[in-house]
Amino acid sequence: MFEARLVQSVILKKVLEAIKDLLTEATFECSDCGIQLQAMDNAHVSLVSLNLRSDGFDKYRCDRNLSMGMSVPCMSKILRCASSEDTVTLRAWDNPDTIVFVFESPNRDKISEYEMKLINLDQEHLGIPETLYSCVVKMPSQEFARICRDLSQFGDAMTIACSKEGIKFSAAGDYGTANVKLAQTAETENQEEAVVVEMKEPVKLTFSCRYLNSFVKATPLCAQVQLSMSAEVPLVCEYQIGEIGHIRYYLAPKIDD
């Protein structure tokens, strides 16, 4: 049997919001360690990697490893039926063809059950090589979301340049150009507002704005986002999910034609 309970269903609601732009279906791998998902978008430009550790759940039981193929829009619809204060329990039997979502109100006077059919997916699993990145930037996630939104008005692509001075985002298009520079913040008490650059070598890479604007749908999950970059390899855009895990987005760069 598989059973995973989260007192804060809002976490799972936010996770679905963070993946539903990119994925239409995905296999959730459940094991003793927790729930993992790895899936590419349809165009194979980006990859989403989600990890929810079993010890982050309020109750977790997984008697045998399960691979559950799920429709992301359907799962998203179901999670929209949960109130943010509800507790959520995911439940499936061994060799399941359905998964059940149970939502309980805080005083347990309302219990809702939604059963969703699982789908058979033959998804390709990719090996992500261990990489030491040339630049790792931590910055407020809302600021990153805002920059992605603002710069995407100017062009389809955004260049991210990281140096010891800080991080610079730029876009160019028919209307003109846009540049936003963020300096590394001094030691600050408010870590959520900090911009921290760890740089071994400067990096300059160009990425599709459309994908970045999908990644920033994860903003409600975490006050900070971590961007890891090296020349000519995919960007890693990572959000911590409370004490339970993380979501990482990998985005293939655009290169000169």
Partner: peptide
Amino acid sequence: NTKQTSIMTFFKKS
């Protein structure tokens, strides 16, 4: 002009 690369160029099937 830039062209979009695929994530599969960088990460191989495992």
